[in-house]
């Protein structure tokens, strides 16, 4: 049973101190925020990913790595039903959020997206004031408390408050790219989601802004479950607790090769392909 959910654990090459490791790791493994079962996604006739069994741990950072086109973004967008916006996209299998299949017919995608927030590759603040960027999501979701207080708390949380506190009413578009991305993170956490999805959140930023985003992610992981797609191996190693590695088969369809604690994936991958990819031996 466990082997199905977590192939890494029971791989024959698991090193010696396996008993000790599994006992602690297994307890963590039990605390699953979202999980997929036999997940496949197609765009029209093209099967972008297939048979994904993935477990994402609560209040941890999980990194998705893999070559371009292997379906990392596709899987990420499954978690908040963003693929619903693509007319050709079709999802099969189950995605369990807190035990409930979010693709069940009675589930409202709008409700799912409130619980699973998203930060995109390119910073995309609303062309409105900084304040409004943070407040809007809360307002449409019927936030009852004090809005000023929420905006300040959220911006502090996103480590942006000191930089913007004097210009809350100015346009968010006037911020730098790194600030805009942190604002987008603030916007996402303002509605207190359970999970925050980040699709290459730092790929458009310089190294310093990237570091700030990474620090922010670490801080947010105290409270939130974070899934981050990245092409930057060092970033995945630095920031994530768990890593999932994807590949494409010869039909160009993506699949999950291996998942597990980041340290293991990076120091002692079970699969040859993971090792090749991480050490840069893939073309």
């Amino acid at each position: 049973m466990l082997s199905l959910l977590n192939p890494v654990r029971t791989h024959p090459q698991v090193p010696a101190p396996v008993a000790a490791l599994t006992s602690t790791a297994e307890m963590e493994m039990d605390d699953c925020a979202i999980e997929t079962r036999a997940l496949s996604v197609s765009y029209g006739d093209f099967r972008a990913v297939h048979d994904i069994q993935l477990r994402v741990q609560r209040q941890k950072i999980t990194a998705f790595i893999g070559p371009s086109g292997c379906g990392k973004s596709t899987v990420l967008r499954v978690f908040n039903r963003m693929n619903d916006l693509i007319p050709t996209a079709r999802v099969e299998g189950e995605v369990l959020l807190g035990g409930q299949n979010i693709y069940a017919p009675e589930v409202d995608a709008v409700e799912v997206r409130r619980r699973v927030g998203m930060v995109f590759q390119k910073p995309n603040p609303f062309p409105k004031s900084i304040y409004e960027n943070v407040a809007w999501g809360a307002r449409i979701n019927g936030y009852q408390g004090n809005m000023d207080e929420l905006v300040e708390r959220t911006l502090r949380h996103a480590a942006l408050w000191d930089e913007v506190k004097d210009k809350l009413q100015q346009s968010a578009l006037a911020l730098s790219g790194g600030q805009q991305q942190r604002l987008c993170i603030a916007r996402a956490i303002a509605i207190e989601p359970e999970i925050v999805l980040m699709d290459e959140p730092a790929s458009a930023l310089d190294p310093i802004a990237t570091l700030r985003i990474e620090e922010l992610m670490r801080a947010l992981a105290q409270e939130y479950t974070i899934i981050v797609v990245t092409h930057n191996m060092q970033q995945a190693a630095r920031v994530s607790d768990y890593t999932a590695f994807f590949m494409v088969d010869d039909q160009r369809s993506g699949y999950l090769v291996e998942q597990g604690p980041t340290r293991e994936i990076f120091t002692n991958p079970k699969d040859r392909r993971t090792e090749d990819y991480i050490t840069g031996r893939f073309g």
């Binding site: 963003m82 709008v110 409700e111 997206r113 390119k122 995309n124 999501g137 509605i191």
Partner: peptide, 19 residues
Amino acid sequence: SLREASYGLGATRWQTIWY
């Protein structure tokens, strides 16, 4: 990207259109 940002926050289709 603007629509995605809006939908991503749990906005309905009409809220996305209107706002």
